[in-house]
């Protein structure tokens, strides 16, 4: 009896010890998987951050296709990307978890997408001086349909002329350029939740809201599919425009001398609080006049 009891206690002891060790290993495995997921997310965020930062170094217009070049924006893993606007700053949310703020940077792209690789295009925005780089981004599984006027977009981007509304693929958006869509087209797009916008030379219409733009931002409207993100980018551009205008005003103070008077152009700069075509043309003219007076140009 005692021998049997001893054997029983032994087994109980073994089972308890075994259960404790097993529990320990299970908890360890769960924590390890969690850590590895966090590391993966960190890698994605790091890749994104470094690649977006690198885009700022572009001195000329450039575009990039990950199929050809390793120097493009590749996240390394299939990632859910969401854009959101917070206090007029654009934030990129990766995998619903990591928030990356785009400080002083614009990004025109779909609001939500899932991808590993992205094609992008950088264009300098000059109005009339260099304000910022406009980054246009298209996920590789995304398509843009265009109806109306032709636009000059590099061939690496997935852009197609819209022929029949019923053949539109998933993960796409439609832009009507200087053309009014038919009611049938609008109904189809709304029913199938396909984002669209209507672009003319001086405004873009997202859903029911019209936003004033100038010619330089037509391409930005083509790559965008959400009015909140588009407006957020515009605010960023306005802020940057104001900052650069202030800088040129201060530069004019430094350049002032007995032979060179910058008061006239400074006065025009103070009126340039909002982007206006007439003031832009006046600034270009006044800047050129400085050259004819043998004075250093302002911009």
């Amino acid at each position: 009896m005692k021998k049997a009891q001893a054997a029983q206690f032994n087994w109980i002891f073994i089972m308890v010890a075994g259960a404790i060790i097993l529990t320990f290993f299970i908890i360890f495995s769960i924590k390890f998987i969690d850590l590895q997921n966090k590391k993966t997310e960190f890698h994605i965020a790091r890749n994104f951050d470094i690649n977006i930062e690198s885009l700022k170094t572009s001195t000329e217009e450039m575009y990039c296709d990950t199929e050809i070049s390793d120097n493009c924006v590749s996240l390394g893993f299939q990632t859910n990307v969401n854009l959101e606007c917070n206090n007029n700053q654009l934030n990129i949310i990766l995998n619903n978890n990591i928030i990356h703020g785009l400080k002083d940077q614009t990004l025109f792209s779909p609001k939500e997408f899932k991808t590993k690789n992205m094609n992008f295009w950088i264009k300098k925005l000059k109005y009339p001086y260099y304000i910022t780089n406009l980054i246009y981004l298209q996920p590789q599984n995304h398509k843009i349909y265009i109806k109306g006027d032709d636009v000059d977009i590099p061939l690496i981007f997935n852009v197609e002329k819209l022929t029949t509304i019923n053949n539109i693929e998933k993960n796409s958006k439609v832009s009507f350029i200087n053309i009014i869509p038919t009611q049938e087209e609008i109904n189809y797009l709304k029913t199938n939740k396909i984002p669209y916008n209507i672009i003319t030379n001086n405004e873009v219409q997202f859903e029911d809201e019209e936003i004033e733009i100038n010619e330089e931002l037509i391409m930005a409207a083509i790559f965008s599919d959400n009015k909140e993100i588009f407006k957020c980018n515009l605010k960023q551009i306005e802020k940057q425009h104001y900052k650069i205008t202030q800088l040129y005003y201060n530069k004019a103070n430094i350049l002032k001398s007995e032979d060179c008077n910058y008061n006239i152009i400074q006065n025009t700069l103070t009126q340039f609080t909002e982007p206006k075509e007439e003031i832009k043309e006046l600034l270009i003219k006044q800047n050129q006049e400085l050259l004819s007076q043998n004075c250093p140009v302002l911009f």
Partner: peptide, 11 residues
């Protein structure tokens, strides 16, 4: 290459 610092001549 920042617009705040980069040289420019007639835009």
């Amino acid at each position: 290459t920042q617009p705040e610092l980069q040289c420019s001549k007639l835009s």
